[in-house]
């Protein structure tokens, strides 16, 4: 996704200035996607150029407040109604690594699986700890849950690899 869609979603709740958008963006994604304020302002400038937002008056501290336009609402609507397709995601290095380990023959694949499984479990433990400590709202929790489900899927897949390779030996 692009940052612009995230910003449109936040602006749909009412006009905001850049710093406020950054804070709200991070609060919603549980800081899993850090943004700097510069990125926010460059994106807002492009969105203004494309007619998705309008810059309003500066507030008493000289910060420009942005508001979503009709075109911006339409673009946000389009984003929420279009499913994400898997090809948008990068190739998974681990999958390639294991396939190559099997192909290389001289590599101890079981050992590669074992190391990875322990490392993935550590990641899963860290994510679970982060989830225990979440103080924000459900948006943050759901972002963490997504990462937990992904790590869990990887763990299951590694168990599956181990079982299949054991059979094949």
């Amino acid at each position: 996704m692009s940052i612009r869609h995230g910003l449109l979603a936040l602006l749909s709740r009412g006009p905001r200035h850049g710093y406020q958008l950054r804070v709200e963006f991070e609060a919603s994604t549980g800081a899993t996607w850090p943004l700097n304020v510069g990125q926010v302002y460059t994106t807002l400038a492009r969105m203004e150029r494309d007619g998705l937002v309008e810059a309003g008056e500066s507030d008493d501290q000289g910060r420009v407040v942005y508001a979503i336009t009709e075109a911006g609402r339409a673009e946000m609507e389009r984003w929420f109604t279009t499913p994400v397709v898997p090809s948008d995601r990068p190739r998974d290095e681990l999958v390639i690594k294991l396939a190559m380990a099997v192909a290389a023959k001289a590599v101890d694949v079981a050992e590669v699986v074992r190391r990875q499984r322990t490392a993935t479990m550590r990641t899963l433990q860290q994510l679970t700890r982060a989830k225990r400590d979440v103080t924000g709202g459900p948006a943050q929790l759901l972002v963490l849950d997504s990462m937990i489900f992904q790590a869990e899927a990887e763990q299951r897949w590694l168990d599956h690899c181990e079982a299949v390779l054991k059979e094949a030996r």
């Binding site: 322990t118 479990m121 433990q125 790590a151 869990e152 299951r156």
Partner: peptide, 14 residues
């Protein structure tokens, strides 16, 4: 046998 529950542990033993 569920990784997501094992992850709550201080230590996971395989």
């Amino acid at each position: 046998h569920e990784p997501r529950y094992a992850a709550w542990a201080d230590r996971v033993v395989f």
